[in-house]
Simulated assay, not measured.
Amino acid sequence: MINFNGTLTDNTRILTPDNRGFAYGDALFETLKASHGSILFWEDHYFRLMASMRIMRMDIPMTFTMEFLEAEILKTLEANSLHTQTARIKLTVYRDAEGLYLPQGHDVGYMITAQALDSDFYLLDEAPYVVDLFKDYFVAPGLLSTIKSNNKLIHVLGSIYAQENDLQNCLLLNTDKQVVEALNGNVFMVKGQVIKTPPLEQGCLKGVMRKQLIDVIQKLPDYQLEEVAISPFELQKADELFVTNVIRGIQPVTQYRKKAYGFTVAKDLLGKLNAKIRLTS
């Protein structure tokens, strides 16, 4: 069942040809994880969505409170019999207006979909995970690169490139040729006791899991966190490299070109991340 502007329907053909999310990518989305009716990091997702809607100059309805959207998500989970297990949720908000490039209004509509996931908590995947750079196109630094808009062509083309080259993922570069993120999440690099991740100013996604992990690392005396630019050259000297998102948690990279990585720090951080979830659930 799909939640389309508050109405539950099993009709999967509900978008019209002039829907601006479809026609112009004039839409935003949040990918969330819920476990037994509890939405992980919901407050962070909500405030990121509100900030992104302001950047996109969308009118935020008075009804779009944290409580209202949470209730709509939970209603969707229950309609799909997913309220007693773990699920992946996609909340899409689009500008609901006529017009061409220039919208004839700034009202919004929304759609919520959900599907089952296997694991309640985050598990460390130790299987081979090989990445390389995707250099056909580059991410432009700026606010629009930090939000989850429907304009994901670089990520689509990078995913095709990864499949064609037997890679599990690709790393994206910005126009300054610095590593900013992976196709499906933020990037963290470990060298000794220092953990680096690109700053938002470089053009990386303002990831919810990125924020959670930064909070975890900053409370640990054994590690030093740095939000700094990462050059492709540094990847060859790193001890560990991992990708983060709210669905997988932490995904260790095992190989970049001829460089092999361990995952000791990733495993340690994942345990602390799961402990944080248990305490806040």
Rank of each mutant, 00 (worst) to 15 (best):
M1W: 06
I2K: 00
N3T: 09
F4T: 02
L8P: 09
D10M: 07
T16Q: 11
N19F: 06
R20L: 02
R20F: 05
A23P: 09
D26F: 00
L28G: 03
T31M: 00
A34Q: 02
H36D: 11
G37Q: 13
I39Q: 03
L40Q: 11
H45P: 01
S52F: 02
M53T: 05
I55T: 13
R57Q: 14
I60A: 01
I60Q: 05
P61Q: 10
T63Q: 14
T63V: 15
F64P: 01
F64K: 06
F64N: 07
T65L: 10
T65F: 08
E67P: 03
L69D: 00
K75F: 08
E78K: 15
A79G: 15
Q85T: 15
Q85W: 06
A87H: 04
I89K: 00
L91M: 12
T92M: 12
Y94Q: 03
R95A: 09
D96W: 05
D96Q: 09
A97H: 07
E98A: 11
Y101R: 13
L102E: 14
P103R: 07
H106E: 12
H106M: 09
G109I: 05
G109P: 01
I112K: 00
T113S: 14
A116H: 02
A116E: 10
D118F: 05
D120L: 06
F121E: 12
L123K: 15
L123V: 14
E126K: 15
P128I: 01
V130Q: 04
V131R: 04
V131H: 01
V131Y: 01
D132N: 14
F134N: 08
F134M: 04
D136Q: 15
V139W: 01
L143W: 08
L144Y: 10
S145R: 02
S145V: 03
N150V: 11
L157P: 00
G158E: 02
G158Y: 01
G158K: 05
I160L: 15
Y161N: 08
Q163I: 03
D166T: 04
D166L: 14
Q168L: 04
C170R: 04
L171M: 14
L173A: 10
T175L: 13
T175R: 12
E181T: 11
G185F: 06
G185M: 09
G185C: 09
K191D: 08
G192N: 09
P198F: 02
P198Q: 03
P199R: 11
L200V: 13
Q202E: 13
Q202S: 14
Q202C: 11
C204I: 07
L205V: 10
R210Y: 04
R210H: 11
V216H: 05
I217S: 07
I217E: 08
K219M: 14
K219F: 11
L220V: 09
L220M: 15
P221A: 04
Q224W: 08
L225F: 07
L225P: 03
E226N: 13
E227L: 12
V228W: 04
I230P: 01
F233L: 13
E234P: 07
E234A: 14
L235G: 06
L235Q: 05
L235T: 12
L241I: 12
F242S: 01
V246Y: 00
R248V: 11
P252D: 08
T254K: 01
T254D: 03
Q255N: 10
K258Q: 15
K258P: 03
Y261L: 02
L269R: 03
L270V: 07
G271I: 06
K276L: 12
I277Y: 11
S281W: 13
S281H: 14
